[in-house]
Design a protein around this nucleic acid. Structure first.
Lengths: 154, 154
DNA sequence: GTCCGTGCAAATCATTTGCACTTCT
DNA sequence: AGAAGTGCAAATGATTTGCACGGAC
């Protein structure tokens, strides 16, 4: 059992830990911990990139999680602060486990590759909004560019 | 003719000027200047807020501009740099005449009101993306909050 | 005259809703 | 038991595509 890529290995301990943390948050918020939701959390925890509802549904496999349930659960988990929404260009929305650290992504316009960027400095523009009387501010932001790989060939 | 609100008045000179500028840009880019497109530009130029394709279609009135044509023309004009896309939460996209000055908006989560914010400081986060090897960077950002009006009553 | 742009109808994609059934707590 | 969650089917909303016709250059 010490060979190959089993999800019980140390290599995935990080993912398991994040699922545990998410479950704890769900209990705090009185959200029910069900099999489909655990599948959803596992898929998100094991993904390096944010995923669409469709991705989550497909990656969970078989009858593990209906697409509609994916949408509804992602919505509920977002409200609970367990997952973070990433609204993308052209109307697509991606989701990732909330990290506690607010951040954004760079998206390659050619190959669609997504990478996380550290930090976020929007204090200036949010101050401008606050000055206009707006409260309870949030924001969405995505950076688009051409990744090193695509710049080289394609 | 000097009374009331005619679009020939001085009050709209600004809008007319912006339409002219847009037309000039279209000619540069070898885009054809047609009646539907002029209607589209006029509607955008006269609006204080960014509009959806549907809005443009409706505000243009009657048979002035088919909805499908609105989508296609907005796409073409965006590529030409004549209009700026503003992708919003929940998959909606709004469009406005490009001002040359890059900027963003605050959107009220309750009433949907939209206001323009001056400037944009994303140099830091774009630098992070550049450091990862990404080139040709652009970004989309929207700020959400509760506007003074909605905070008061609703 | 040619090619781009247009209108209309129909298709597509992401997401939501209604409703009866199951399962956490 | 009872509310919250689930699955399936069908609806919705935004945007796109196919195709024949019309007008800008």
């Amino acid at each position: 059992m010490s060979h190959g890529h089993s999800h019980e290995d140390g290599c995935c301990g990080d993912a398991s830990r994040r699922v545990e943390a998410a479950v704890a948050r769900m209990k705090e918020k009185s959200l029910r911990v069900t099999a489909p939701r655990l599948n959803l959390l596992r898929v998100l925890a094991e993904s390096a990139e944010p995923l669409s509802a469709e991705d989550v549904h497909r990656l969970a496999g078989h009858g593990a999680l209906d697409l509609v349930t994916a949408y509804r659960s992602l919505g509920a988990l977002e409200e609970a602060g367990v997952v973070q929404r990433h609204p993308m260009e052209r109307g697509r929305t991606l989701y990732a486990l909330a990290t506690g650290h607010h951040h954004h992504h760079v998206v390659c316009r050619k190959c669609g590759r997504i990478e996380r960027l550290p930090g976020c400095d929007t204090s200036k523009i949010e101050a401008a909004a606050r000055a206009k009387g707006y409260a309870d501010l949030t924001h969405v932001m995505e950076i688009y560019g051409i990744c090193p790989g695509c710049a080289a060939h394609g």
